[in-house]
Amino acid sequence: MNNINKLALIGGFRSFSGSIIWPYVGFALYKVYGLPLSVVSLFYLVQAVVNVIASISGGIITDYLGRKRSMALSILFSSIALLLAYVLNMPLYVMVFILFQSFFNTVYNVSSTAIVGDMYKGTSQLIKAYSRQRVGINAGWALGPLVGGYIFTFFSFRTLLLISSLLVLIIIPIVKILPDFKGAGSILNFNLNKEFLTFLIPTFLTFAIVGQLGFSILTYYNTILHFTEFEVGILFAINGLLIVAFQDLAGRLIGSKVKLISFGMVMYGLAYLAIAFITNLYVAMLDVVFITIAEMIVTPISQALANTLANKDTRGKQMGLYSMVTGLGRVIGSSVSSELMNYYLYYPLGLWGSISLFGFSSAVLYYIILRRLKSIVV
């Protein structure tokens, strides 16, 4: 088995163990533990702060300890955090230990993103490699929310915490057989360039809308259209299965055509705007198909561009910054949508029209930035 397939397998196990709980965390805090939406919004804001700390420190750890050791340690401590949340099972403790797990998830993401950049060169090869890695990751995401939704509906969120904490340990032996890479130079030297920093601006907006496929969709569909958690889990499963089936093909078709990222962001914006007009599960399924097509275009191009613009000697730290921005985009996007729901939950066009602006804005910025990077991005 070659290294990218090992990473895809590791990503699959890890994403399955994580995705049985993550789409339901905010919802569980709201429905199961009885916390108001304002507290859920605060939780996501605190998670944003945790993500900043984890991304910066994770980049330093990844360069210093190496990719392989960072991945293994982050998986182990992530498992321990979820186990403690299961044992203590009170709202404050659950939030605190899920935030710890979020910290170690971020360290893992930095390491796994950096190691692909170490092994492959050029935007075309990187897009193909990240597409293959995403096949594994989304195989887990295809099954995880569906299983998680079933367990949540018929057992409990607490049961999900226990199962997730145990499942993630399975992949540590596979991590140990990967090749290792380390950074070079001073531990605090990030060696940033203007092109990389500029690219991070639309990246933030991109992942603010990417992160809506979770708490926002679940809460809206459950509250307004009365879909069960299991039915929303079906939507998440469609997303994952389509990526498993077609992400490799999408990567080959994209090749080095990185400007397609703007097209993908326009599609994201339109697909989320369309949620305001959805009235039943079948139309919601169709809309998820378009959200998924946008994701298959945008995400591997974004990862490939980040690695292309990064310096190889400080790749871990720069992928830490990239992870920080993507993570901030996700959690602040969820926080913004949570806050918007306080005012527009029963005014769908206002809610999803506002959210769709993340996609349209980033599409314009990518178009402007990529025109200036023709000589760099090849």
Results as ranks from 00 to 15, higher is better:
residue 281 L to Q: 07
residue 80 I to Q: 04
residue 179 P to H: 03
residue 233 G to E: 11
residue 70 S to A: 13
residue 16 F to A: 02
residue 73 L to F: 14
residue 307 N to W: 00
residue 366 Y to T: 03
residue 200 L to G: 00
residue 285 M to K: 05
residue 264 G to L: 07
residue 7 L to S: 08
residue 260 L to D: 00
residue 30 Y to V: 00
residue 375 S to Y: 06
residue 214 G to F: 05
residue 320 G to M: 05
residue 156 S to R: 09
residue 205 L to Y: 08
residue 298 V to P: 01
residue 102 S to V: 07
residue 184 A to M: 11
residue 135 V to H: 06
residue 356 S to W: 06
residue 250 A to N: 10
residue 113 T to R: 08
residue 160 L to V: 06
residue 129 A to L: 03
residue 133 Q to R: 14
residue 319 M to Y: 07
residue 97 F to P: 11
residue 316 G to W: 10
residue 364 V to Y: 11
residue 46 V to Q: 01
residue 232 V to K: 02
residue 187 I to T: 14
residue 296 M to K: 01
residue 218 L to V: 13
residue 157 F to G: 09
residue 55 S to I: 03
residue 39 V to C: 01
residue 49 V to A: 14
residue 150 Y to Q: 05
residue 298 V to E: 01
residue 374 K to S: 14
residue 32 V to H: 05
residue 129 A to M: 06
residue 200 L to D: 08
residue 134 R to Y: 15
residue 284 A to Q: 05
residue 178 L to E: 08
residue 277 F to A: 10
residue 170 I to Q: 06
residue 196 F to N: 04
residue 294 A to L: 09
residue 357 L to R: 06
residue 297 I to L: 14
residue 347 Y to C: 01
residue 95 M to P: 12
residue 236 F to R: 04
residue 340 L to K: 02
residue 241 L to T: 14
residue 42 L to M: 11
residue 351 L to K: 00
residue 244 V to K: 02
residue 304 A to V: 01
residue 142 A to P: 05
residue 79 S to G: 11
residue 60 I to W: 05
residue 306 A to P: 03
residue 357 L to G: 00
residue 274 A to E: 11
residue 324 M to K: 01
residue 259 K to R: 14
residue 13 F to S: 00
residue 110 V to W: 05
residue 214 G to I: 05
residue 269 G to K: 08
residue 368 I to P: 02
residue 35 L to V: 07
residue 169 L to E: 13
residue 248 D to T: 12
residue 95 M to T: 04
residue 85 A to P: 14
residue 22 W to M: 10
residue 256 S to I: 08
residue 181 F to W: 11
residue 172 I to D: 12
residue 54 A to Q: 09
residue 257 K to R: 15
residue 145 P to C: 08
residue 285 M to L: 10
residue 351 L to P: 10
residue 276 A to E: 11
residue 242 L to R: 11
residue 291 I to C: 03
residue 282 Y to C: 03
residue 375 S to K: 15
residue 39 V to Y: 12
residue 257 K to V: 11
residue 59 G to Y: 11
residue 232 V to C: 10
residue 372 R to P: 02
residue 25 V to N: 07
residue 356 S to T: 07
residue 1 M to R: 09
residue 106 T to C: 03
residue 343 Y to I: 10
residue 270 L to A: 15
residue 71 M to V: 07
residue 228 T to N: 09
residue 316 G to H: 05
residue 60 I to Q: 06
residue 378 V to I: 09
residue 162 L to Y: 04
residue 344 Y to S: 09
residue 241 L to F: 15
residue 228 T to Q: 05
residue 89 N to D: 15
residue 48 A to R: 01
residue 64 Y to S: 07
residue 143 L to P: 04
residue 280 N to W: 01
residue 363 A to S: 14
residue 162 L to F: 15
residue 227 F to D: 06
residue 173 P to N: 11
residue 136 G to K: 07
residue 97 F to M: 12
residue 135 V to P: 00
residue 74 S to N: 09
residue 330 R to V: 14
residue 104 F to V: 06
residue 130 Y to Q: 07
residue 33 Y to T: 12
residue 137 I to E: 10
residue 41 S to L: 07
residue 290 F to Q: 02
residue 130 Y to S: 03
residue 184 A to N: 12
residue 33 Y to R: 09
residue 218 L to D: 12
residue 129 A to C: 06
residue 337 S to P: 04
residue 155 F to N: 12
residue 377 V to C: 02
residue 326 T to M: 11
residue 19 S to D: 15
residue 313 D to N: 15
residue 149 G to E: 13
residue 198 T to I: 14
residue 377 V to P: 00
residue 157 F to L: 12
residue 300 P to H: 00
residue 353 G to E: 01
residue 120 Y to G: 01
residue 37 L to Y: 03
residue 86 Y to W: 15
